[in-house]
């Protein structure tokens, strides 16, 4: 039981990271109907930016305050990653709007290969590890010999995820930009007719998606303390699984799907086999798409002639 509670805590933490990435997939799919294959690598790039910011802060400026450095890491990673994703949209996806269906997907695959190799070439192929930023934990309760703990970094991840999701929900539900996004999602031509700048709205979607991925990347660096250029692909596919499981296009679905994938992966590695944990996540993706293609919260896709 204690072991189970501990795994749930770990699973929710991992799930928050997946959920933040999954929002990026689901938003982009909702608005332009493409799988942004490079999103996992955008996440990885943001983790590198956060790591470099951390090194700049500690070695060049000698900042020791954890709160300050985490805050600056978050902001820097969000800014630069947003710029990168904006540029990606501008270069690789916008010229292909209205082209045949597979073109943006192929372009996104190319961008994904480019990003991971760009990081490999510019930062080297080795794993980059930093000393733990946040240490310490709460002991929730202790039965026999096994303490159930909630570490500070898990609390930080939960807290930041919750705050950002609230801010993000406000942005989509209550602001002019959010309304424009929802309008573009329903009908781009009609949205353009009523005076919405569709291109700008789509660019804003990519920027928001990247900012959330950057939050996930910063959390990832803080939680694991290590990142490598190849870390984009598997978390990317898992986050995509989360988006599909929640129902692609649905924002609450992405968060719920992320949490579910995090839990499934953690419990699977805890109780069955850690070697096959990625297989479990990929199988969830295949099973969901085959038996429940609209996901938990999605609308069924009606095929018209």
């Amino acid at each position: 039981m204690d072991y189970f509670v501990q795994q749930i805590i770990n699973g929710v933490t991992l799930g928050s990271i997946y959920g933040l990435i999954a929002i990026g997939y689901t938003m982009v799919f909702g608005i332009i109907g493409m799988v942004n294959f490079a999103h996992g690598d955008v996440f990885m790039t943001s983790a590198f930016i956060a790591l470099i910011t951390f090194l700049i802060l500690t070695t060049l400026f000698g900042i020791t305050s954890i709160a300050v450095s985490l805050f600056i890491m978050l902001i820097t990673a969000m800014l630069f990653t947003s710029l990168i994703n904006w540029a990606i949209e501008r270069i690789a996806y916008r010229p292909l709007r209205g082209s045949f269906r597979l073109a943006p997907l192929i372009s996104a695959i190319g961008m994904s290969i480019f990003l991971s190799n760009f990081v490999q070439v510019s930062q080297g192929p080795l794993n980059k590890s930093i000393p733990p930023i946040v240490q310490g934990e709460f002991v929730l309760f202790r039965h026999a010999s096994y303490p159930v703990t909630l570490s500070y970094k898990q609390v930080i991840i939960w807290g930041i995820t919750a705050v950002l999701l609230a801010a993000f929900w406000f942005l989509v539900a209550r602001t002019r930009l959010g309304r424009a996004q929802r309008a573009c999602e329903q009908d781009q031509k009609m949205a353009a007719l009523v005076g919405i700048d569709v291109d700008r709205t789509i660019a804003a979607t990519f920027v928001i998606a990247a900012a959330l991925a950057a939050v996930a990347g910063t959390m990832y660096v803080m939680y694991y303390g290590v990142v490598s250029f190849a870390d984009g692909f598997v978390p990317g596919v898992k986050a995509f699984t989360a988006a599909v499981l929640g129902g692609i296009g649905s924002l609450p679905g992405a968060v719920v799907g992320g949490l579910l994938i995090g839990l499934i992966e953690t419990l699977w590695s805890a109780y069955f086999s850690i070697d096959y944990k990625d297989v479990a996540a990929f199988s969830v993706l295949a099973i969901t798409l085959i038996f429940l293609p609209q996901g938990l919260f999605g609308r069924p896709d009606v095929e018209k002639v």
Partner: peptide
């Protein structure tokens, strides 16, 4: 995967490809 179309089909085949590779590894 017969019922799936377009992007979905692509991602499921990707998942199958990765599953086969991981089985080969493990």
């Amino acid at each position: 995967v017969l019922r799936l179309r377009g992007d979905y089909l692509a991602i499921v085949t990707l998942a199958f490809g990765e599953i086969i590779r991981m089985v080969l590894i493990n």
